[in-house]
């Protein structure tokens, strides 16, 4: 069975201030089946965000392939990667990245407008599911951190994505809110038949996942292979 996400020989490096190149991501193989919920562990600076940005098509890899639902994302021109991201991928950021000038509802609707189109009833349903039915017209600054996180989750799911990427989604939350948020993200993804790839360095968060992989291991294996060549 074809996995939802399949990554081969992925490599991404950046130019260092002294003119050299620093390899941040070097993943030989990585795959996720449909609806899987997988946590990737990794310390700060281990390339977690870069890895997610590569999967989301925000960054273009130096080499290798990323295939999402049969589409070789890494080979697509930028406009098509944008389109694929808008329709197949939901992204939850550590800092939520809500648009401050827009209400909760508008944040969700705006995300939809770049994808398959605005579906207001679905957006309202999502926000209701997140317990935000009373906050639809509130601006992010008028919400608690936990509520902002829930808006970000609703926005990530607004386009009925096949894959949700979550980058340290509990990094800005206290323990109680973090526990609730992880539960909510997992439930919401399950209800919407979306796979979840969550990266975190928080042990408590990682412990709540049945499947956990270490990004450092993934990177190490590839780098070792690179070194052997």
């Amino acid at each position: 069975m074809t996995p939802l996400l399949e990554i081969r020989q992925l490599k991404k490096s950046f130019v260092t201030p002294d003119g050299g190149r620093h390899t941040v991501v070097a993943v030989d193989y990585f795959a996720m089946p449909e609806q899987q919920q997988l946590a990737l562990s990794g310390e700060s600076g281990s390339g977690k965000t870069t890895f997610l940005n590569l999967i989301a098509g925000i960054l273009k890899p130096d080499s290798g392939t990323i295939t999402l639902e049969g589409s070789a994302m890494s080979a697509l021109p930028e406009a098509q990667r944008d389109r694929l991201r808008a329709t197949k991928i939901g992204y939850i950021f550590q800092t939520f990245n809500l648009l401050q000038g827009y209400t909760c509802l508008e944040n969700v609707l705006l995300g939809m407008s770049f994808g398959p189109g605005v579906d207001r009833p679905f957006a309202l349903g999502l926000l209701q599911r997140m317990g935000l039915e009373q906050k639809l017209n509130h601006y992010p600054r008028q919400l608690s951190t936990g509520q902002q996180q829930r808006v970000a989750v609703a926005r990530a799911l607004a386009n009925r994505p096949r894959l949700v990427l979550a980058d340290e989604p509990t990094g800005n939350l206290d323990h109680r809110n973090a526990t609730e948020a992880i539960g909510l993200i997992r439930e919401a993804c399950r209800e919407n038949n979306a796979a979840l790839l969550l990266v975190s360095h928080d042990r408590e968060v990682l412990q709540r996942f049945e499947s956990v992989q270490d990004l450092a291991e993934l990177n190490r294996a590839a780098r070792a292979a690179e070194g052997a060549v």
Binding site: I58, D82, R83, T87, G111, N159
Partner: peptide, 16 residues
């Protein structure tokens, strides 16, 4: 630019 980056991350294309 941050707002633009967020919009782009949500799928907004450059020409949009």
């Amino acid at each position: 630019r941050r707002e633009i980056a967020i919009l782009r991350a949500l799928g907004a294309r450059r020409h949009t």
